[in-house]
Design a protein around this nucleic acid. Structure first.
Lengths: 223, 223
DNA sequence: TTTTTATTTGACTATTTGGTCAATTCTGTC
DNA sequence: GACAGAATTGACCAAATAGTCAAATAAAAA
């Protein structure tokens, strides 16, 4: 059995640094989820992490620094999850369905990450928001677009692909964000999953109509 | 011709107070849109409104007070717009389509209100967010549910209605919020409108499948 | 006009916060 | 063990902020 890649090479000090850093990131994740990106203070984070205040500034430039890192982490994981589950799929409907499913699974047991993701999206609207958040979000969109493009035989215009990516990802986060306050304790994931088909069917139809009509394989069932 | 209801009865002082209040609300709307609900300071608001700082506290309890009022205003207007356009509709598909259309029209020329709406939704997730925001959002959802319920002949369970309300409203805000950063200058409204049909078709199918199968008019086509 | 009441003001206070840094502790090396 | 460098600490400072209030101003009433 092969050993884990780098653990043995790390010195104790490196492990300690890494642990401190993780404690800070985890604490920040909690605090940001409770109070919001802006309202949470650095002291909140260091207290939650049980480290001195100066330690924060040893590891991160400032609040923006840790926010950017958290966003990159979450979106990076999400992108990886999407890729790993969708890379093999060749059917459009299945791909759309799986993409939405990945989102549901991903955020299912990770409420904090969803709040982070949602706050990040909200921050993108602000004139004076946090810089450095935009890039990972665009990469995330582009991943979705790339996978869609690979499955659709005829090259759709970039703008159409982006529409579909926005629709699919926006649907999940928009629905999720509302459902969570609207359903008290009920299992939101199952509820969302049952609606998944509605959007997938609609999107698949939309896409097939966007294809050149003479070659469209499935879909158009009007009149 | 009947006179306007209350204008003539207002004293000059009342008008002045009202004007100051409006200046503050409008300034707050701008500042919140630029910096976010938390990052904006009271001084930002009073300076933008060009009034003394104390004036703010004469009119509002604190930041939460003005935020609650802004949210109530925006959502109240949105609910009114939905009701006025949808009250007469008796066809499900048309109702769904119109509801989404109302959202698009409503937020079309009102970027600030959309950001407010989106931030409000985000704040609902926080443990230590602003109290008093939840109520208007739930009323908004209930309006959508009531209209849906009136159009569907068979009484759907409350939870199903809520799912559909979450899906429709979540779709719009989720899509909008992403599209706006993803498309540079392009007309997002038209783009969203073109996708409207996809969700409407999907939702209509979803609903018809949720109906008792023996009476369902359209939809069920599984083997 | 004079008096009374409502509204506005911005200087002021008390608190909070981001950020710094000299001192301290911990690690690895010689 | 002794030394050097890395990591940690929390007291400390300067800036920013929420919220107050006595005084000023405007409006209504007498």
């Amino acid at each position: 059995m092969p050993r884990k890649k780098k653990k043995p090479q790390l010195t104790r000090q490196q492990r300690r640094v890494s642990a401190t850093r993780q404690k800070l990131l985890e604490a920040a994740r909690n605090v940001f989820t409770e109070k919001g990106l802006d309202a949470a203070t650095i002291a909140d984070i260091t207290e939650r992490a049980d480290v001195g205040k100066g330690t924060f500034y040893y590891h991160f430039q400032d609040r923006e620094g840790i926010i950017n890192e958290l966003m990159r982490d979450v979106l990076g994981e999400l992108v990886a999850a999407i890729e790993s589950k969708c890379e093999q799929i060749s059917d459009l409907t299945e791909l759309l369905d799986t993409m939405i499913g990945v989102h549901i699974e991903f955020f299912s047991g990770r409420w904090e990450d969803f709040v982070l993701y949602f706050q990040g999206r909200g921050d993108l609207h602000l004139k004076e928001g946090y810089a450095g958040i935009e890039t990972p979000f665009l990469q995330y969109l582009e991943t979705v677009e790339r996978l869609l493009d690979a499955v659709i035989q005829y090259r759709l215009p970039k703008t159409v692909l982006r529409r579909i990516a926005c629709a699919a990802t926006g649907f999940v986060s928009g629905y999720y964000s509302f459902a969570v306050i609207a359903y008290e304790d009920e299992d939101v994931d199952k509820t969302l999953a049952s609606l998944r088909g509605a959007l997938v069917a609609g999107l698949a139809r939309f896409i097939s109509e966007a294809l050149p009509p003479d070659r469209s394989a499935a879909g158009g069932r009007s009149g």
